[in-house]
């Protein structure tokens, strides 16, 4: 564990008495100026990151004609929340929200469990064929979704699971999307000192006991990173739901967003953007609250290196 070095490094010279030698003070002043320049650089760099999201949120309050303006307007000329009401009347949006939420939660929990077990076993337990099996699993990291969507659909159809949520839960938890999580957990456990586990064994814990009572609690930060990755991925999954699901009540959010169209198939931008805003803001809020945890979780995880 390297938690002691996770705190951000000090970049400033330690606090000094008021009477510092002149060159030093000048150096500090220069550094202060540089720092403010860097803040300005950051602010300018932020623009392309922030503006589209800003546009998305504010455009949900605009009428269609204003949204389609070539040079976007920063603030609606005449803000209106009408679109938000229509989000819920045009589709069972609450149901779809719930679908996305419960699928993402189940997938996240399932992936954490599967990845923790597999990651632990690949890192800690010696069994014949471990390396070969690990390589087999890693193949999943290399397969774009478009490559296997047709055979996967055939498999799902053969099992009679079309228009159910099963393929959206089982395939991510056990298939290619889980591989990155397994990899992260394995790297984490590789870097974990063995002393604590040995102590546990001396106390009479079996392998499962060590795993549940010692290894899993210690891996909370890495599991946190896995959870965030997995949740985001499931929350934004698009191609698979479009292919597997056919009734509106079973749709997930990214798919539902494309269904706000007028009688001629033209998108109702303001309603679509209102629905999009509703799907994005909660996730952004969670990140805002949990980002410290997130960064540190990654710092602890194998991804740090």
């Amino acid at each position: 564990m390297r938690s002691e070095i996770i705190t951000a490094p000090e970049t400033e010279a330690p606090a000094t008495p008021v009477l510092v030698p002149l060159p030093r003070r000048r150096a500090r002043a220069r550094r202060g100026l540089t720092r403010w320049l860097l803040v300005v650089v950051l602010a300018v760099l932020s623009l392309p990151f922030v503006f589209p999201t800003w546009w998305m949120a504010t455009s949900s309050l605009k009428p269609m004609s204003e949204i389609l303006r070539r040079v976007p307007t920063l603030w609606p000329q005449d803000p209106s929340f009408d679109a938000y009401g229509r989000v819920f009347t045009l589709q069972p949006f609450a149901q779809q929200y719930w679908n996305s939420l419960y699928i993402a939660v189940v997938v996240t929990l399932g992936t954490m469990l599967v990845a923790a077990m597999a990651g632990y076993a690949f890192a800690r337990i010696r069994f014949p064929g471990a390396n070969a099996l690990f390589v087999l699993v890693l193949v999943g990291l290399l397969v774009p979704a478009e490559v296997t969507i047709v055979p996967l659909f055939r498999i799902v159809n053969t099992l009679g699971l079309v228009d159910t949520h099963w393929p959206l839960i089982v395939v991510p938890v056990l298939g290619a999307p889980a591989v990155l999580a397994v990899f992260i957990m394995r790297q984490f456990f590789l870097g974990l000192p063995t002393e604590l586990e040995e102590a546990g064994r001396l106390d009479g814990l079996g392998r499962w006991g060590v795993f549940w009572r010692i290894a899993v609690p210690l891996s909370r930060s890495a599991l946190g990173a896995v959870a965030i990755f997995t949740f985001l991925k499931s929350w934004n999954l698009y191609l698979e739901p479009v292919v597997y699901l056919s009734s509106k009540e079973s749709f997930t959010l990214p798919q539902a967003l494309t269904q706000y169209v007028d009688a001629y198939g033209g998108p109702m931008w303001n309603v679509q953007l209102a629905a999009t805003t509703l799907t994005v803001l909660p996730v952004l809020a969670v990140f805002l609250v949990a980002q410290k945890q997130f960064v540190q979780g990654l710092a602890h995880s194998g991804l740090k290196g």
Partner: peptide
């Protein structure tokens, strides 16, 4: 422990 992800 590796069975779920290997079979998957």
């Amino acid at each position: 422990m590796v069975a779920p992800v290997v079979l998957g």
